[in-house]
Design a protein around this nucleic acid. Structure first.
Lengths: 121, 121
DNA sequence: TAAAAATACTCCATAGGTATTTTAT
DNA sequence: ATAAAATACCTATGGAGTATTTTTA
């Protein structure tokens, strides 16, 4: 199972519309249609009623929605934290140390290196 | 973010080996290597030390592991329930009704059809 | 008739497999 | 020398876009 279709699905559930969901997600409407179609095929279930001019979840769709929201939330949590860590690991700490003093204040003992790579600005 | 690489990642964390993870997941070893490489590229982080003959998670990898396990678990929960619902919706209810009586006991009023398709065994 | 969703098609990215090479013990 | 991971290469699948058609209110 992939996460993107679940995001599409959640958006459809919220907006009750394939078109609005597509706009909200900045993708073309057919992408959403096909993603849901494939998701339904993969699960062997109908998730959304298309009948009577009204997009609504089936009973199975309602059950999936609960899970989908958890999965999306957990993924967003992960992405957020990883993004923060990435920012940290990318961020340079520019410390203005005269180069000759650097080796004194920031010595490089074997196996004990700074957590964040630093260099003089 | 896709779920399969996260499964690979969790398996590597557990087995401390790309090769064992691949076997466990029934995929070729390079698939695992490349999936992790892409995951690291996507996140902009190094998740696994490859140095010194010992596969181990970096600090960032350890943080991701916590999230990855949640995501995988939530996904498995979803797949399990959807699988159960699929089994139900596929299951036929075989009711032994003499065909001539069927239309009496199970009439087909317009727009009011049974929830589960039935037919006589 | 107008909207929303589905279908048709095309293209490109990527996941995965086999074969091979690199690396470290 | 061996075992494990990385790289190279190839193929096939599928995800997404544009254009178009179908459907229903």
């Amino acid at each position: 199972m992939d996460i993107k279709p679940l995001r599409y699905f959640v958006a459809i559930a919220k907006t009750a519309s394939f078109t609005k969901a597509a706009q909200q997600l900045s993708v073309a409407q057919p992408a959403v249609s096909m993603a849901i179609k494939k998701l339904e095929a993969d699960l062997g279930l109908t998730l959304i009623h298309r009948a009577d001019r009204h997009v609504g979840l089936t009973d199975e769709g309602k059950r999936l929605l609960v899970h989908a929201e958890k999965i999306v939330q957990a993924t967003d949590d992960a992405l957020l934290e990883m993004g923060e860590l990435q920012g940290l690991s990318q961020g340079e700490v520019r410390v203005g140390i005269p180069s000759m003093l650097g080796s004194y204040y920031f010595p490089h003992f074997d196996g004990v290196s700074p957590q964040i790579p630093y260099h003089c600005a």
